[in-house]
Simulated assay, not measured.
Amino acid sequence: MKEVELTDPYTIPYRGIYAVCDENNEYAEIIEHTNCYSGAAWSRFHYARSPLVQKARAVGNMSRYLVKVDVCDLTLKPSVAAAGIESVVVDGDEVSITYAGLGGGGVGATKCRAFAQGVLRYDVGDSGGGKAAKGTIVVPRRQRVLIGIDDTDTKEEGATWSMTHNIATALNSNESVYLSHSLVQLFPVSAKTQNCVSTVLEFGCVSEEAKEELLEDLKNALLKYSVSEETGMVALSSFDASHMEEYSTMCRSGELTKDIAMEHAQKNGVEIWLDGNGVIGALASLAWFARPDESIDLEAKL
């Protein structure tokens, strides 16, 4: 018989909480990496009703909240609107997020989030039982960095999706956190190795220096492990990649040339880090970041 010993039976710390902001600090995406999916599902249901939350969704075991940077008044109601996000404030290179909740929702709003990886400071009140509770966490302000990669394999060996994930996992750090990985189905062109799929990686970087170091390290890893001479690697620092949708649709609908890809990269502010023919598919992957369930379907629309 095994006796259960719990240090804190009512706290399940999140694995990590991150805040990615747009260029003008008008909107942010709060990304919460959970250790308890059902608890996160409960939070998403209730937080989606907060006035600041524009959109709430799950990507794997991460909850992603698109929020307006602002302060609001929350009216909490048991069972119906029992928890929410009360404020999101950007101050220099830090973001303060205030959560509120009733009962168990208050526990989530305070200690569970306060002890997450990536939290710089916190201020929480008592929670649990029948109490209403409030908690504020401070996390680094991050910029979104998207990295498109294609053509790292040959007909004899390799697989882009698995190698890129392993490289991204190895490069994951507090300064450049690895947020998502999507396989993007492309039009089956004649030069494909087999399935004609590219990959987009999403990172949240705390500074330009962290971003440049990440991209250099990722490029060097691709040069080390790729078995193709035509590897393409592109990078885009942008909160929103919607301006890449037109090109992505073209690439998923027919065969394009490298010249067309390079023209669109220049027009849309995309950096070329490795310029093999793989840039054609790498560029098309950018618009599909954090949408892995849709990006694998060639008929899915952006």
Rank of each mutant, 00 (worst) to 15 (best):
residue 295 S to I: 02
residue 193 T to V: 05
residue 287 A to R: 10
residue 135 G to P: 01
residue 7 T to C: 13
residue 113 R to G: 07
residue 205 C to K: 03
residue 159 A to P: 04
residue 196 C to M: 12
residue 283 L to S: 08
residue 134 K to T: 14
residue 124 V to F: 01
residue 161 W to D: 13
residue 22 D to M: 05
residue 119 V to C: 01
residue 133 A to E: 01
residue 253 S to P: 04
residue 241 A to S: 13
residue 250 M to H: 15
residue 190 S to K: 12
residue 174 N to V: 09
residue 135 G to W: 01
residue 166 N to Y: 13
residue 258 K to H: 12
residue 262 M to E: 14
residue 78 P to T: 07
residue 78 P to M: 10
residue 294 E to D: 15
residue 21 C to H: 03
residue 145 V to H: 01
residue 137 I to L: 00
residue 83 A to S: 11
residue 85 I to S: 08
residue 12 I to P: 01
residue 182 S to I: 05
residue 34 T to H: 03
residue 271 E to I: 06
residue 158 G to W: 07
residue 300 A to E: 05
residue 49 R to L: 15
residue 6 L to I: 08
residue 184 V to A: 02
residue 153 D to Y: 08
residue 14 Y to D: 13
residue 217 D to S: 13
residue 250 M to L: 15
residue 277 N to Q: 12
residue 148 G to R: 02
residue 90 V to M: 11
residue 274 L to F: 05
residue 222 L to S: 03
residue 289 F to V: 08
residue 36 C to G: 08
residue 163 M to T: 08
residue 142 R to K: 10
residue 95 V to C: 04
residue 238 S to M: 06
residue 20 V to Q: 00
residue 233 M to Q: 10
residue 226 S to I: 01
residue 214 L to C: 03
residue 299 E to F: 12
residue 271 E to Y: 10
residue 78 P to F: 07
residue 73 D to M: 14
residue 81 A to K: 11
residue 109 A to S: 15
residue 209 E to M: 11
residue 211 K to M: 13
residue 294 E to A: 11
residue 19 A to L: 05
residue 166 N to H: 12
residue 205 C to N: 03
residue 81 A to Q: 12
residue 142 R to N: 04
residue 180 S to N: 07
residue 129 G to Y: 07
residue 31 I to L: 03
residue 202 E to Y: 02
residue 19 A to Y: 00
residue 271 E to V: 05
residue 104 G to E: 08
residue 22 D to P: 11
residue 94 E to Y: 11
residue 21 C to W: 01
residue 129 G to S: 06
residue 276 G to S: 06
residue 116 A to P: 01
residue 274 L to P: 07
residue 70 D to K: 07
